[in-house]
Design a protein around this nucleic acid. Structure first.
Lengths: 217, 217
DNA sequence: GTCTATATAATGATAGAC
DNA sequence: GTCTATCATTATATAGAC
């Protein structure tokens, strides 16, 4: 028995379709068929395709917000827990990846929120002695979130590279292991490049505030 | 004066449009207008929209192949050179990111090629004492390429996080600095998570024949 | 709330003149 | 090679019955 309301059933079908084939390619007819209703009813409830998307955005963002709030509350800095939590919401995850890459406003808001939370959690981890303090904590948070989300957006290609199924347990294992190695040691044998960069930095002063104009134009 | 042939002018306009708004949203009419020709001529030269996409795929892949071949030839392991080279081909880069995310076959082929090259270049770097040897070189190459490409796909969001313009020099600087820090030291203060993972690995044997897989080639 | 039409708009593709 | 029509399809969205 499906005790969800018809409206929420339509919305969930839309989240699934949008996440699977993207907003453009998904049609109201297909979504209606998936939810076992007529195309007209979809428009009756959500006004337009754009309205339907907004409802999906809101629901997915809220859903992720709830699960993340729990993690922040319990102060989880454990990467295993993070991975497990992400894997649980696969349809929402797919939807989110599509939205991020399509540049939907809701997805942008979520990206920013995750960066903020990541920064906060990193600070906790540093205090606890688990994480290494960064010279630019905000920049690092932005980069790590972009890497993590970006890799999810390219999950299909990573899976092919590993020779496993996308979103499978094996894939989680392989990605996790490789990520932990890189994030535990880095990839450079020494700090020659970092040092070189810092010298450039100090010489040219390419820091965010002053670099607004640049030279040529 | 524009001395390109009309056909190549159409193709370049298509690369630009496809990269900017995606294959679905891009219309033949718009592309034709950008190239200052009629919609009919676009179809005359490329047969169909799919044919036009294939021509774009081929051209972009070949273009990237040429610039990468040069780097491999000169044995460049320097991340600065890599960044600079990537920034030079912005329209092609945007196109590639769209294609990767849309799952176009050409883009998949390119992803795999870059992984293979990245693995080879990493081996060189290890020999030269610049890079730290990985326990799973192939997996690491897949992950790093996915991170790099994925981050580019989310460039818009990273730029917002940094408060700079996408694809600007400032962005390159900020990303490069943050990436070098992570790739030089990692983010974990110690190896507790990596050790925990390895223990799980040995106990459950979740590794799908990667010892046999990673040798040849 | 839910359905069955139907209107309207846009797009990929074709045909044929020049 | 290049253009101007035009077709055929498909999608969103509307109107109105039940």
């Amino acid at each position: 028995m499906d005790d969800r309301t018809t409206k929420s059933r339509i919305r969930d079908a839309a989240i699934h379709r949008f996440g699977e084939v993207g907003f453009e390619r998904a049609t109201i007819r297909e979504i209606a068929a998936d939810a076992d209703v007529s195309p007209g009813l979809v428009l009756h409830h959500f006004g337009s395709k754009a309205g339907l998307r907004e409802a999906c955005d809101e629901h997915v963002v809220a859903s992720f917000g709830a699960s993340r709030a729990e993690m922040v509350e319990t102060g989880t800095t454990d990467p295993f827990a993070t991975l497990a939590a992400l894997r649980e919401e696969e349809p929402h995850l797919r939807y989110l990846m599509r939205a991020l890459r399509d540049g939907s406003p809701a997805a942008a808001r979520l990206f920013d929120e995750v960066v903020r939370e990541s920064e906060a959690m990193t600070a906790l981890g540093v205090e606890a002695g688990i994480l290494r303090p960064s010279e630019h904590p905000h920049d690092q948070a932005v980069l790590l979130v972009a890497w993590q989300f970006g890799a999810l957006a390219l999950a299909e290609h990573m899976a092919r590279g590993f020779g496993v199924e996308p979103f499978s347990d094996e894939m989680t294992a392989r990605v996790g292991r490789a990520a932990l190695e890189v994030l535990s040691h880095g990839v450079f044998a020494d700090t020659r490049y970092e040092d070189a960069w810092r010298r450039l930095d100090e010489a040219a002063d390419v820091t965010p505030a002053d670099a607004a104009e640049g030279e040529s134009e």
